[in-house]
Amino acid sequence: MFLLQSDSINNIIPDTVATAVTQTAKAAEELRFIDLLVKGGWVMIPLGILFFLGLIIFIERYITIRKASRDESNLMVQVKQNILSGKVDAAIALCRNSNTPLGRMLQKGVTRIGRPIKDIEGAIENIGKLEVSKLEKNISILGIIAGIAPMFGFVGTISGVIRIFYNISLSDNISMGIIAGGLYEKMITSAAGLAIGIVAYIGYHILNIMVDRVILRMETDAVEFIDLLEEPGR
């Protein structure tokens, strides 16, 4: 009798474990990331658009600013050497071939050699502002996304709460099954909005820091160029 009971227990335990594992695997399979996003409701559509728009802008601006921020110390040295040697055309060709914000700024200054220093400074400053505006293009959109994405998440929260009370009013019954749908929408949209806002906020400041470094380098080289023209004998 005892042996029969032991055999029954030994058979039941593996079956129970196997059933539990199967149910857990099934639950994990059902609770997929895409399913969670779908449960977020219609608010996930504008949030998704904001996410991909921010991602595209960040990647495009990052690549552009990285190209503009590459080391151009050799260009400055060669331009100085050509100017001191009186080879203005060669200096202009070097600046044109560099195809960088610094090169275009120096090119404008070199073409103005012979004019008053104030005119040269004004021309360099104008080109510098134009190049900076090109680098900052669309970066402000990331700042906008960082601000409105959490707001969309909050809209989803309100929508989820409304759905909960609406379902309760229809069924005249409070149960987890009725509340679950609204809670899914409420929590998922809030989390997605905050996550997108945080990522966009970080990307916005990363790009601004990179632009500031380019501006500092351009200003430093512009001052060095003006000092070169103000040297005695120029």
Rank of each mutant, 00 (worst) to 15 (best):
I12A: 11
V17N: 05
G109H: 01
L130C: 11
I57R: 04
E72D: 07
E230D: 15
F225E: 06
P14K: 05
I206E: 07
I209T: 14
G181Q: 08
M151C: 15
F2M: 07
I202W: 13
R61K: 12
S98R: 01
R112D: 13
G177P: 02
L3M: 08
G147T: 15
I124D: 03
F33N: 00
K118L: 14
L36E: 08
D212V: 05
F225Q: 02
S133G: 13
A180S: 03
I164W: 00
I9S: 02
N74W: 09
I49S: 13
A149V: 14
L207K: 05
R32D: 15
D35P: 02
G54S: 12
A180N: 04
L4D: 10
I178T: 00
M44H: 10
A123Y: 07
P14A: 01
I202Q: 14
G147H: 08
Q107Y: 10
L37A: 11
N167I: 06
M105S: 06
M44R: 11
R70E: 01
E136L: 04
H205S: 12
I162L: 10
S171Y: 01
G103V: 02
F154T: 13
F154Q: 11
V211Y: 01
G197S: 14
A195K: 11
F33R: 03
I34K: 12
V88W: 05
T64M: 05
M44E: 10
Y201A: 15
V79Y: 05
R66Q: 02
F58E: 09
V17P: 05
A146W: 08
L207T: 07
K80Y: 01
R32F: 11
D15A: 11
V132R: 04
E29P: 02
K118M: 14
T24V: 04
Y184A: 13
K87I: 08
